[in-house]
Design a binder for these strands. Structure first.
Lengths: 331, 331
DNA sequence: TAGAGCTGTTAGAGCGCTCTACTGACGAGC
DNA sequence: GCTCGTCAGTAGAGCGCTCTAACAGCTCTA
């Protein structure tokens, strides 16, 4: 009934439990004969080692915990891909958890993750208060993605939103646009940096900035455009805070009888799968998501192995992906 | 340096380790005084129980393992939401893993999940060979979502694709359509049932069926429409195998100068967030994803508690969400 | 007044492993 | 021939917890 243990395998193979342990961990100091016997016995019994007992006994863990604030956001899926590959290459297992964007749920999720005593944790865009992060960081290495922190026990990996915002502006300016508005992401993670990038780039080109407050949703993007239309202040180009917002903006423009990009150009941010759809084909700023995941895993493993004690602050370069929603301004 | 243990808490509170254990598990047979003392000591030391040691000692687990074939598909995010809520209500923790659509990676992911000795596992649309599933099922309760199985140790939760396919056809017929084609999902999970639903419903209305082979991507949807156009056989309505495919079909129609839904109606499947975007506003078949997750958790917990031994086969009813891509046929 | 029946508490074994220290066997070196 | 070192293997403690059994210290009953 119960699953077989090392003891069972040892008995069947006619060796000691300790030897089975050595075989399971691939130790070189086991004779071929015994190794084969143990492996056969394990095979026959359907034995596989008990990760928890192992980590309890060895006082080490080969598990990395990942808490995702929002599983619905495909952005994280790609980050996790990169992270997962990197972790597995280094012999670590990854377990994932979700906090569903709620601070209370995230707190529980984090506690639950910590109860497995992983070697370290990665928090993807957490909304949990920083006190919770610092108390976690007191126990094990912590890496933050898409959220900054000044804690010295914590590494961070972010994309350079300022650069991304500037990339969008520069592209539009090079097409000949001069009246460019920014649909602002408000409280959204990273929106401050994107806004600053927009402002700096506009100032750099000697152009007047125009910020419309909005949010990371398509409905908000549409609303922002309607406000601009109602005020009679529609510019020739829009830099949206993210792809969803950009798509909402495009639909509001089309509903108003305007054509994108003939009448108005629109740039998104994130290069989500949505932006790549032919039906949408959005010019957007791409974050190197896979790379973000790899770097997060790498930073964490450096800490885990004690190779580094000072905090790492990674800032990755975004790039522009030009598709069909940008063109020179009319006339 | 090391994290505090029960022993530390016990010493600090001036009680035995066993009493701390009772307090941690919320046992009623502890006096108020001692309980308070223990809780204070735990608080001061920043103690939290070691889940692995606990499950090792108690020979039980309060962990449910979830393996997701593809984290990029937002469909699973909602299933996990439902599952997670249900599991937490019942005092279980959820850990997630991903197999990235590759049988080899899924196998590793499954092994890794099992090494935590969870109370049971849920496999979301796994592509792993059924031998791996049955060997897992020999060790613990297994629930399959979006994949069927005849194994008696395995429960399954699926949406009724036949009903969904029929729902789409019935809606179009009631609008007056008679020439309705199906863009088929090929090898995609659940596409067979959707096709059968289409075929049965068409036959039921006495209409000729027309199946175009396609896939679960927007590019494939566009290609299928171009084939229909090239053959001069464009029907007045399309039942796509999923939302992505439907969006691809819509763009190809619009590229050809046709208007949706004035010239051609299109119905998707899945009711993804994409379908709800105003820019897309796709009429589609909705699967009760949250409910799927809840049912998966519920089935698993019934098995875990030994309340049921025979396999459960849940088939959930999809529903139609009418948006802006369907209308009566021209003339 | 002895026993029965609580209630609150503890000692100690043991969950499935790893790890340190040790043993026995065997050949090399003097 | 004797020590020494190496190699293959084992015994036994212990990781942080739970659980069983036992045990004080009560009150209640006969």
């Amino acid at each position: 009934m119960g699953r077989p243990t090392m003891e069972d395998v040892a008995r069947r193979a006619g060796v000691s439990r300790a030897l089975v342990s050595l075989v399971m961990r691939g130790s070189p100091k086991v004779s071929q004969t015994r190794r084969a016997a143990v492996q056969r016995a394990a095979q026959e019994l359907g034995y596989s080692p008990h990760a928890m007992a192992r980590s309890l006994a060895s006082r080490t863990s080969t598990v990395l915990g990942v808490m995702v604030s929002d599983l619905h956001n495909p952005f994280f899926a790609e980050v996790i891909d990169g992270l997962d590959v990197m972790a597995r290459e280094q012999g670590f297992d990854v377990i994932i958890n979700t906090g569903g964007r709620s601070p209370a749920r995230e707190r529980r999720a984090l506690t639950s993750l910590l109860s497995f005593r992983p070697a370290g944790v990665v928090l993807l865009s957490p909304v949990v208060p920083s006190a919770a992060i610092s108390s976690a960081a007191a126990q094990l290495p912590v890496v933050l993605v898409a959220r900054s922190s000044r804690l010295s026990g914590v590494d961070t990996v972010n994309d350079d939103g300022e650069q991304g915002g500037a990339l969008a502006v520069d592209h539009l300016v090079s097409l000949g646009h001069r009246r460019i508005a920014h649909l602002d992401g408000g409280e959204g993670s990273g929106s401050g940096a994107r806004r600053r990038g927009y402002l700096t780039a506009m100032a750099g080109h000697g152009l007047p900035a125009r910020i419309v407050s909005s949010e990371y949703t398509d409905a908000a993007g549409a609303r922002a455009v309607r406000e601009l239309l109602a005020a009679g202040e529609l510019p020739t180009a829009l830099v949206a805070c993210n792809d969803l917002n950009a798509v909402g903006a495009v639909s509001a423009l089309e509903e108003a009888g305007l054509r994108v990009p003939r009448d108005v150009s629109v740039v998104g941010y994130d290069n989500t799968a949505l932006a790549a759809l032919r039906h949408v084909s959005l010019t957007t700023v791409d974050q190197p998501r896979n790379e973000i995941g790899r770097l997060a895993a790498e930073s964490l493993l450096q800490r885990v192995r004690g190779e580094r004690a000072h905090p790492a602050r990674h800032l990755l370069h975004p790039s522009l992906v030009v598709r069909s929603t940008t063109a020179p301004p009319p006339d």
